[in-house]
Amino acid sequence: MSLTTNPRTLNHPNRASSPGRPKQTLRDRYGDRAFNIAATTVLLLSILAVVYPLYFIVIASISDPNAVYEGKVWLFPSGVTTEGYERIFADSRIWNGLGNTVIYTVLGTAISVSTILCGAYALSRKDMPGRKILMLLFVITMFFDGGLITKYLVVRDLGMLDTVWAVVLPGAVGVWNLIIARSFFEHTIPNELREAAQMDGATDFKFFFQMVLPLSKPLIMLMIMVHVVAQWNSFFDALIFLNDDSKYPLQLVLRNILIQSDVSSTGTTGGDIESYAAAQRIAELTKYAMIVVSSLPLMIALPFMQKHFTKGAMIGAVK
């Protein structure tokens, strides 16, 4: 693909002998061409390796479970059925989990993003006394960690077990995100702007909320997305801090169904092997559909989010 759009190899076949490129021999050009072919092949194979399993899950989720079971589904769905999806939509655990996840995601993101933005801005101000020591306080936590057990005991002592707070608070502020936000403020908010605002009598609060935040939309978008994705996908805090399964987020419900193979709601009818095997196949079908449904929201949002994440990687790399 890249070969055909390469003007050097196609449009100017004699360029190698032109005076501007004295040493570009024919052999080198073939070397580059071989490289292009090899690179494109490797990347196409990588794309296939990423896409095919996902594609297979999508077609398997709408195929007759018997056809999937017998290995007849490879490129196209066979014997289209929506039973897997119907079962999901009838499963109250999924809906309940989805509702919890939405609550945890909105609340968690709001807490994390506002704490990080405010804190990072303060730390970005070179005129704040004690800035270096305070920053060190955060950086230390990147290298030393109290560990799982003491974190659990602290959350328990705070009386947060089995509450929303246990899911949204313990991981609220990532130091890495704080550093990214701080270096964004350092690089995009000019000192002169603040001095001018202070001349006009603006307080730090006023300057932060009325000038800095409106100028930091890309950062705010990035932070929101990072936290939405992380919270949407997280299960571990919920696993250790929640006992009450009516509070389980979607990921934990999925784990119990997909991985622990908890088929209680798919109904094992009768005692004979035939119907048990059929129930098993339906359960498999439901799993495929469940993977699709739970990943779809973020996959749809991906093209929209990509721009911001790429920018975020840049900010991180600059640091």
């Binding site: 804190g119 303060a122 109290g146 003491t150 005991l153 602290v154 730090d204």
Partner: peptide, 19 residues
Amino acid sequence: LLAPAIIYIVVFKYWPMYG
């Protein structure tokens, strides 16, 4: 502005570290 973040690391990072 920094206070919430400080409270956070004291409670959820340094307290467990003390523990």
